[in-house]
């Protein structure tokens, strides 16, 4: 079990954090009978390591000036970030019942104007990294040592603005900028590698002047090492962690299902999904 002894919320294992994030996400998706549950289950380990190992923040003051920024470029992953924000104590657990409902603070695509802890309005894919570049420049200008993390999907590697921002980040030596690419090899029209391959991914980032790592995004120990390396590095370069993840991770019967951008789950299957998670409850 990986614990983060030096993190203020390191009293619970990261595996258990990830498990709880998955559980919250499944409960949220069950409210609407739909939702981006495949992505949420896949990215849960990354969020567990980010929010309970790497990031510094104050749950009772989400806008604390000293916080590490976490930008959700891939807006439809909001269900997963809401789950992490609940686990972090920034959002109340009972609010998950409102996911995607009228007038909820938890819209299906994340918006900064709606939700505490949501730094930007993602969803127009490819916008996160340019905004992160501006925030990282601004933080350095303010002599604020906070990190800026941008979570994006592999599909967003196809957006030109991502690479505009990648060039700018390297040119301006934004060493407090950490980009996390959730490489689940899935986008709206099919497998990312078939829609428009971004490979070789790490080489691309390195050619743009970044420090690049590629890890198994469902391996918590590997993620911990990658985040540690990215944060501790002394090189004046922005960092990217490309994380290969598996859609629906943690719910075996969904993992075996034909994977799509929108994973179909029948009404009676939500309870089955929770039961499957509960059978694998970590310590």
């Amino acid at each position: 079990m990986a614990r983060s002894g030096n993190h203020p919320r390191g009293n619970v294992s990261l595996e258990r954090r990830a498990w709880r994030i998955r559980r919250y996400a499944v409960r949220m998706a069950a409210v609407q009978g739909q939702g981006y549950i495949g992505q949420a289950l896949g990215v849960a380990d990354i969020l567990a390591v980010a929010w309970f190992h790497a990031l510094r923040y104050r749950p009772d003051d989400p806008a604390w000036e000293g916080r590490d920024r976490f930008l959700l470029s891939v807006g439809h992953y909001a269900i997963a970030l809401y789950a992490a924000l609940i686990e972090a104590g920034i959002l109340p657990e009972e609010e998950l019942e409102t996911y995607g409902c009228d007038d909820s603070r938890l819209p299906m695509s994340g918006m900064a104007s709606h939700t505490p802890g949501m730094e930007i309005s993602g969803g127009s894919l490819g916008q996160g990294l340019p905004i992160a570049v501006g925030m990282a420049l601004a933080l350095r200008h303010k002599r604020n040592p906070a990190f800026v993390h941008n979570l994006m999907s592999d599909g967003e590697l196809e957006e030109g603005a991502t690479w505009e921002a990648a060039m700018a980040a390297a040119h301006h030596r934004l060493e407090r900028l950490i980009c996390i690419v959730d490489f689940n090899d899935q986008q709206a029209d099919g497998r990312s590698r078939e829609v428009l391959s971004a490979e070789p991914v790490e080489e691309k980032w390195r050619a743009f002047g970044w420090h690049a790592q590629r890890v198994d995004g469902n391996d918590i120990a590997a993620l911990v090492a990658a985040f540690d390396r990215a944060r501790a590095l002394s090189e004046p370069r922005p960092r990217v962690i490309v994380c290969d993840t598996r859609m629906c991770r943690g719910v075996p019967f969904l993992e075996r299902r034909e994977i799509a951008h929108f994973v179909r789950v029948a009404p009676e299957e939500w309870e089955r999904a929770l039961a499957a998670l509960d059978r694998a409850e970590p310590a």
Binding site: E119, I120, P130, A132, A138, A161, M167
Partner: peptide, 13 residues
Amino acid sequence: QALIGAAAGFARE
């Protein structure tokens, strides 16, 4: 695009 995105980042800060 990076110009306007970055400007948004500055404004956020």
